[in-house]
C-alpha cells in the first residue's frame, strides 16, 4: 500500500489486524470477518506495527520467545534469528540495538507463529538508507519463502522494488491497484526520450520530425510510441550533423502515476507528518 502520510494506510491495516474498530463496511482476512473472528485471525497473521517496540530489558532471543509463547505453536527462535541474520545480537538487550536491527527483530517476531499473512506497517520509516536496504533484503527473503506480505510505505521506490502488487491510496481511497508495471502502463504517461543540450542543427531536424515534442530546461523531450522510435531518433540525430550532450530514455515511475492521479507529489501529499 503506497500513499502519502495521512492517506489511511495504517488505519486500513490496523482494521485488518483487528487492532482498530471500523466505523462502517466489512473486512475479511483469509475469509474471516475481522469483527467476529478477531482471535482466529490473530493466530494466523504476523504483525510489525508502526513504531514497533519490544521489551528493552529482554534479549533479542527472549523477546522472540516471549511473543512466540503467545501462540499455540511457534517457530524455533534460533532459526528466525538466523533467517534475519541476527546471530551476533541474539543475546543482546533489545534496548541496545540500532533502529535497523530493531526492525529486523520486529520482522522476526512477526514471523514467530509462522503466519499466513505478514503485515509490515512502514517498516523503513525513520531508518537511514543503509538500514532501509537491510530491511528490504529481509522482505525479499520473506517473498522467496512464499509468504504473503502486506507492506505499507510512503516511499515510491520501496513499493516499486518490493511489490508484486501495489495499491495506491490517497485520502482513504484506492486510486490504482495492480503490479507496478500494470499501474504504470495504465496510468503513466509512457516512456520518453530526452536529448540534452542539442544544438540548432539537431533541433531543426528533431522539431520537424516530431511535432509532438516538448522542450523543458534545455531538454528536448519526445514521447516514445514504440521501440522503433528510439532508433529513428538516433538516425535523425546522426544525420543532422549537429551535436548534443546526452541522450536518455526514461520510463514513468509510480511517483509520476501518483502525480497524474492526484495532482500532488507523494512527499507533499499528507496534511501533517504525524497524521497516522
Amino acid at each position: 500500500m503506497l500513499g502519502p502520510n495521512g492517506a489511511g494506510k495504517t488505519t486500513t491495516v490496523e482494521i485488518l489486524e483487528c487492532l482498530r474498530s471500523m466505523t462502517s463496511g466489512e473486512a475479511r482476512v483469509l475469509g474471516l470477518d475481522v469483527m467476529k473472528k478477531a482471535r482466529e485471525i490473530k493466530y494466523k497473521i504476523g504483525v510489525l506495527p508502526q513504531d514497533f517496540n519490544a521489551f528493552d530489558l529482554l534479549t533479542v532471543k527472549e523477546n522472540i520467545q516471549f511473543f512466540g509463547s503467545m501462540y499455540d505453536r511457534m517457530l524455533d527462535p534460533m532459526d528466525l534469528i538466523k533467517v534475519m541474520d541476527l546471530q551476533e545480537k541474539a543475546d543482546e538487550y533489545f534496548k541496545n540495538l540500532s533502529g535497523g536491527l530493531k526492525q529486523r527483530v520486529g520482522v522476526a517476531i512477526a514471523m514467530v507463529n509462522d503466519p499466513e499473512i505478514i503485515f509490515l506497517d512502514e517498516p523503513t520509516t525513520g531508518l537511514d538508507p543503509k538500514a532501509r536496504r537491510e530491511v528490504w533484503k529481509v522482505i525479499e527473503e520473506l517473498k522467496k519463502k512464499g509468504k504473503t506480505v502486506i507492506l505499507t510505505t510512503h516511499y515510491m521506490e520501496e513499493a516499486e522494488i518490493l511489490s508484486d502488487r501495489v495499491g495506491i491510496i490517497d485520502r482513504g481511497r484506492f486510486l490504482a491497484l495492480g503490479s507496478p508495471r500494470e499501474i504504470i502502463d495504465e496510468h503513466g504517461s509512457g516512456s520518453h526520450c530526452i536529448i540534452a543540450n542539442a544544438d540548432a542543427k539537431c533541433l531543426n531536424v528533431l522539431k520537424e520530425r516530431w511535432p509532438d515534442h516538448e522542450i523543458r530546461n534545455g531538454n528536448f523531450i519526445i514521447p516514445l510510441r514504440d521501440k522503433d522510435n528510439l532508433v529513428e531518433i538516433i538516425y535523425a540525430l546522426d544525420g543532422s550533423g549537429g551535436n548534443y550532450e546526452q541522450i536518455q530514455v526514461t520510463r514513468p515511475t509510480l511517483e509520476d502515476v501518483f502525480l497524474r492521479l492526484t495532482g500532488r507529489k507523494l512527499a507533499e501529499g499528507g496534511d501533517t507528518e504525524n497524521a497516522e
Binding site: L19, K42, F52, N53, F55, F67, M70
Partner: peptide, 14 residues
Amino acid sequence: ENGIFKKLMTTPLT
C-alpha cells in the same frame, strides 16, 4: 506510549 501494547494486541493475548 512506546508501542508494546500495540504489539501485544496483535497477538492472541487477551
